[in-house]
């Protein structure tokens, strides 16, 4: 299997640059005599995150917060708990409290647009991370995983390992999230070309491990002889694996995830999970924080959407991955 090496090179270069850029300024207080830093430390950056009930998003949030702090800002994480109402309240608080910028991971691609517009109207720039909002004129920039090509690669590996005939279940993420559908469509753009592969059930488990466990447990009552489960994220993949383990089918049914969460990367190495797709939450979070910093220093020329390459992680190449990225 061919492995994309260039994304690694580019990402490695980006990360190295970030290390160089940040290496001299890691401090919670501004350097003496540095006027620009002294000015920026007066600013506060909010990290509003869809949920912290998933390690992947914890990494995204904490990396964004830490990078903002490295750049001289006070940074605070707000957990929306996958609740658009809580998210809206966070925006109200952030706007009224004088935050300088928001690093944002939305709960709802459409519903969250109003929050971003409200912040923009109040002069608070918003920088989206990982999840897209369905507007091109609200956020300053959107740093997004290339979910579609990730699941195209995963779909090809699925066909290679499951075969061109068989039955499978798909567990979707949040139906209001564009990542959910980008992943599903990428996967189906490949797998649907093989008429012998039949999807016997498709259900949303909202990116949640417990819900995935419950959903697959129920599905297995009606469909006990499936060959594979495609999950829209790694938390659901682990929930699916637990359901299969309880049903004594874990060694017969292949589970595929998406995210590159540490637990799943280890499970790929152990042969429990067939494959996942490594996103780069740290790259996205750092880039968003740096964009915010540049914006607050006067830069205005940002591409609205910047896709970030992802990589297929299989048992063959899993040794190269860990800690939410490539091992260097």
């Amino acid at each position: 299997m061919k492995l994309p090496q260039l994304p690694t090179l580019v990402l490695a270069f980006g990360l190295a640059s970030l290390v160089v850029l940040s290496g001299c300024s890691r401090s919670d207080s501004p350097a003496a005599g540095d006027g620009a830093t002294a000015k920026s430390v007066a600013k506060r950056v909010a990290v509003i995150i869809s949920t912290l009930n998933n390690p992947w998003f914890v990494v995204l949030a904490e990396t964004a917060r830490d990078r903002a702090r490295e750049l001289g800002y006070e940074a605070t994480i707000f957990d929306s708990q996958n609740d658009p109402t809580k998210e809206s309240t966070h925006f109200d608080n952030v706007i009224s409290s004088g935050y300088g910028a928001v690093l944002f991971n939305c709960t709802d691609a459409k519903g969250s647009v109003a929050n971003v517009r409200r912040a923009k109207a109040a002069g608070v720039p918003v920088f989206c991370m990982d999840r897209e909002i369905e507007a091109s004129d609200a956020a300053v920039s959107q740093i997004l995983s290339d979910n579609y090509s990730g699941t195209v690669a995963l779909g090809r590996y699925f066909v290679k390992t499951v075969g061109e005939t068989g039955t499978y279940v798909e567990l979707l993420g949040l139906v209001a999230d564009t990542n959910t559908w980008a992943r599903s469509k990428g996967f189906h753009s490949v797998v649907d070309r093989y008429p012998g592969l039949k999807m016997v059930a498709q259900q949303s488990a909202e990116f949640d491990r417990s819900k995935a466990l419950e959903a697959l447990d129920t599905i297995l009552q009606a469909q006990p002889n499936i060959d594979a489960v495609f999950c829209g994220n790694d938390a659901m993949a682990m929930g699916a694996y637990q359901a299969l383990l309880a049903a004594r089918k874990a060694d017969k049914v292949r589970v595929f995830g998406f995210d590159g969460a540490d637990e799943v990367v280890r499970s790929v190495a152990d042969g429990k999970i067939a494959a996942t797709v490594m996103q780069y939450p740290k790259v996205m979070a750092r880039t968003a924080a740096e964009n915010a910093d540049r914006y607050l220093k006067g830069v205005r020329d940002f591409p609205q959407r910047m896709p970030v390459a992802v990589e297929l992680v299989t048992r063959e190449n899993v040794a190269k991955f860990g800690n939410y990225g490539r091992k260097e």
Partner: peptide, 25 residues
């Protein structure tokens, strides 16, 4: 043929010229 190779191969199509990533895909 799967994926984005043809779309992105020439460098002429820009994600920021369409309304969403879904449309780009």
């Amino acid at each position: 043929v799967f994926g984005n190779t043809v779309r992105d191969g020439t460098g002429l199509l820009d994600v920021n010229r369409v309304s969403s990533l879904q449309d780009f895909n």
